[in-house]
């Protein structure tokens, strides 16, 4: 079972992959509509939005937490340093 390099989610079924493409190493939540992988800024924004929508946190706290979480993932280990 592969794990999304951009958010850490396990990808078990075809439906978890962007446009059902199981050769990709990122999941459908980390892909744009055309199936390409979101940029660091796009992922940071979507993760921040997810934290606000599900946990109701302050926007600034949510963004800091999202940046911390994605900094641990293979796709963003360098992009998160700034």
């Amino acid at each position: 079972m592969k794990q999304c390099i951009a958010c850490g989610m396990p990808m078990r079924k075809v439906d978890d992959y962007p446009l059902g493409d199981t050769t990709k190493n990122y999941c459908k939540y980390c892909a744009r509509a055309n199936g390409s992988m979101q940029s660091y800024d796009e992922k940071l924004a979507s993760m921040t939005e997810f934290i606000i929508r599900t946990q109701g946190l302050d926007a600034h706290v949510a963004q800091k937490s999202a940046a911390f979480m994605i900094s641990k993932l293979p796709a963003w280990k360098r992009g998160s340093d700034d």
């Binding site: 989610m9 997810f50 934290i51 599900t54 946990q55 937490s65 911390f68 979480m69």
Partner: peptide, 20 residues
């Protein structure tokens, strides 16, 4: 340290994803 808080939010985000 603040990283501890962020780790807790990370754990909660995983369960939030499945619960959502």
């Amino acid at each position: 340290p603040k990283e501890a808080q962020q780790t807790v939010i990370g754990i909660q985000s995983v369960i939030a994803h499945h619960l959502d």
